[in-house]
Amino acid sequence: MVKIVIDPSCINQGGSTYDDTEVLNRIKALEGKTDNFVSEVTVSREGDKVKLKYTRVDGTSSEVEFDDKDTISMAYDDSALRARIEALEAKPDKDTVYDDTEVKNRLTALEAKEDSDKQTLTLTGNELSISNGNSVTLPVGVGKEFVVTSDTEGVVVTKAETDSTTTYNVNLDDALNKFYKKAETYTKKEVDNLLTTQENKATDLTVYKGTFTDKTKVKEGDFEGPNTPRITLTYSSSTGVGILKIDMKVMSPVAKSTIVANLPADAPVPVTLIESQVWVGNVDTSVWVDTGSRSLRMSYTANPDIFNKRIIINIPGIFKKV
């Protein structure tokens, strides 16, 4: 609404009279005019029909209806989903919850059960028994019964037993008496035969000749001929005693445990390690033969002060044929 106010001084000036009737009428018409602004609008749809209704500020209302086939109104129908959810919620729970009560009870019973596996073996005499069980009678001795006898004339063996001990008594008196009695009647020929047999045993000797493996390192100490071998093992088969003799010269450096000579394949071997050490001035070296071996080894030798010096070593030992 527009309201116009006119100062009266502007209406009548200079003696002339202004007729403002038309202006006043037009002003009144404007003052009586109402703004045609709307205050509320609603929209509804039925099928393709769209209805638009609005209310003006003066309280009057209007309604407009038109067709709309381009806009598709589709309300989401969730009835099927709701039905499925309701069916799932109403479905009975068929899952089985494992009940371990029975197993726990059985475990508890087993834990509380007395351990009957703890048993003790007891041996009384030859009676072997087990606690909470049976017993057996063991045979005397292990395997076959231990028997002591003699097939020598004049030797008598007697057996005496107590509850826990078995004793064998060996009597040699009669055998010794027979021997001494026989000794009184030995002839000179029998005595000579005995002495010859013993002498043969004492002189039952065999000599085995060895060879050097690398004469650029270790060689014979002097000229070697058929009657002068420089490595020999003299062995007595009746006593097992042997003497290993080495006559040698070190010619160049020798690494530790180098095999410098070998005995023949038919030679007896040491029952245990045999070894000897030698000094030449302030320089030393050693040679040895391991148990069961036929190889002569040398320790580390590299000092030239020992080179080309004759060394003779004799090593006694107990040997055996293999």
Rank of each mutant, 00 (worst) to 15 (best):
L24W: 06
L24D: 09
N25W: 02
R26M: 10
I27D: 08
K28A: 14
A29Y: 04
L30W: 06
E31Y: 03
E31G: 05
E31N: 11
D35C: 01
F37C: 00
F37Y: 10
S39Y: 00
E40K: 12
E40V: 04
E40R: 11
V41D: 05
T42P: 01
T42V: 08
T42G: 10
T42L: 08
T42E: 13
V43G: 07
R45H: 01
E46W: 06
G47Q: 06
D48N: 14
D48S: 14
D48I: 11
K49C: 03
V50Y: 05
K51M: 13
K51E: 15
L52F: 15
L52S: 03
K53R: 15
T55G: 04
T55D: 04
T55Q: 12
V57Y: 06
V57R: 08
G59N: 07
G59A: 09
G59F: 02
S61K: 05
S62D: 14
S62M: 06
V64M: 08
V64I: 11
E65T: 14
E65C: 02
E65P: 00
F66C: 03
F66P: 00
F66G: 11
D68G: 00
D68E: 10
K69N: 12
K69R: 09
D70E: 14
T71K: 02
T71A: 10
I72K: 14
I72N: 10
M74H: 08
M74R: 13
A75P: 04
A75S: 14
Y76D: 07
Y76L: 13
D77P: 02
D78M: 09
D78L: 14
D78V: 09
D78H: 11
D78E: 09
S79T: 14
L81M: 13
R82S: 13
R82H: 07
R82I: 12
R84V: 11
